[in-house]
Design a protein around this nucleic acid. Structure first.
Lengths: 230, 230
DNA sequence: AAGTGGTCTAGACCACGTT
DNA sequence: ACGTGGTCTAGACCACTTC
């Protein structure tokens, strides 16, 4: 091997772990030693090992070195689906229908979760997303107009709320939660299932600084799976 | 600003995107230009932008440059929980109970999914994981003894199957799926819920090369959530 | 105090995609 | 052909952890 790329090195490290040359818990050679072995710069080794550590295959600590992780499947990267693209990607046609649009003062529980003052006015939207005309996902969204200026004038029947927000409101970070819940009456009616049917739920709470922009609950119809590889 | 670190640069890029100095869809300056502006090496800019692109905030293409992503929340990193640590991390005591352990020939559907020959012999385990003595998660696992040599002699009542596998069987990759399902009779009985209760399900299929090592379905009790930040 | 990874530099060449 | 990001180098200094 003349000169190794960081990907070559990653492949070789993976191979050594898989073939038990390096076993879980073992300390592997230092960057300097590996650089000599692979005839490359230390920075190249560093990048290779750093990325493997980010995926959880290795654990690195200054002074004590780099060890093979005891539990290599610790992190998974999920692609957050964009519903329209997800549906079109299957060759189906996407449509969405705005079922309900109101301005209401926030319920107490929501005020706490969204870090709002008492009786803050919110936009509340209920939307059904469809694939080939059949219910696919039911969206229940709350928008804080103080953070999302202009939302009151937006034509949300034409542009989806999500697209409008992406285009018009900056965000700093978000919380995401995945869980399973039995369908409530709204979800059941919209998705055409019986109340209590197990639904895959994604909750997303989006922030700009200390202010919440929007909270959305996505309820997917039966059979929905999120998949990833490690 | 004397010299900027790659993290300083990431923070500043985030700030410019959040404050709409750079808007979604905009092309930002080239690495060379940014290196001049920040008075640092191009490699530093490269690392800052590369990492932001990995999280989905930026999109990079040779020749056309770096653009602000239209949909910044495209990827989420989930920590795959290690059940024992997850429970102990809440200050609860962890226990698990091996409910059933058999050697059976694989059902046809499983043979296909696990890429096995016909009537391949498998180890089938059913385990209940408990927090403070209460049901927490029900695990249904199939192990391929051809890939997991020694499993037949392992004392799986003492060491959990997962720990035994981690210590003794190398893996190359895995498929993971998340979904919601109504509890079947086994799950309901083990978790102490009624049949049909919505459960959060994680399926994991683990490979060594072209051979499957183990397939496991984890069924979490009601109320379980996986959370992450973006 | 010493060993290890973490980061940065200045420069170089390459790969890809657009023109 | 050219412009952009992708990667690599040889060396340096720093930060953290353990001794």
């Amino acid at each position: 091997m003349s000169r190794a790329s960081y990907q070559d090195i990653q492949a070789e490290v993976r191979r050594r772990i898989q073939t038990r040359v390096w076993k879980p818990g073992d300390t592997i050679p230092t960057e300097v030693d590996l650089a000599k072995e692979f005839n490359c710069a230390r920075a190249t080794i560093n990048r290779a090992l750093r990325e493997l550590a980010e995926t959880g295959l290795l654990e690195r600590r200054r002074k004590s070195g780099t060890r093979v992780s005891l539990n290599p499947m610790r992190k998974a990267t999920l692609d957050i689906p964009i519903t329209r693209l997800e549906i079109e990607g299957r060759g189906q046609t996407y449509r969405h229908k705005l079922l309900e649009s109101q301005q209401v003062s926030a319920p107490d529980a929501l005020s706490a979760e969204m870090n709002l003052g008492r009786s803050q006015m919110l936009v509340h939207l209920k939307t059904l997303h469809m694939a080939d005309g059949r219910p696919f996902m039911y969206e229940d969204r709350w928008i804080n107009p103080k953070a999302a200026r202009g939302i009151l004038r937006a034509k949300l029947a034409e542009v989806s709320a999500n697209e409008w927000l992406v285009q018009n409101v900056p965000i700093s970070h978000g919380d995401i939660a995945f869980q399973a819940l039995g369908a409530d009456t709204d979800q059941a009616a919209a998705l055409g299932v019986t109340v209590g049917t197990a639904l895959f739920i994604i909750d997303r709470l989006t922030w700009m600084g200390t202010q919440t922009v929007t909270k959305v609950r996505l309820a997917y119809g039966p059979g929905y799976r999120m998949v990833t590889q490690i």
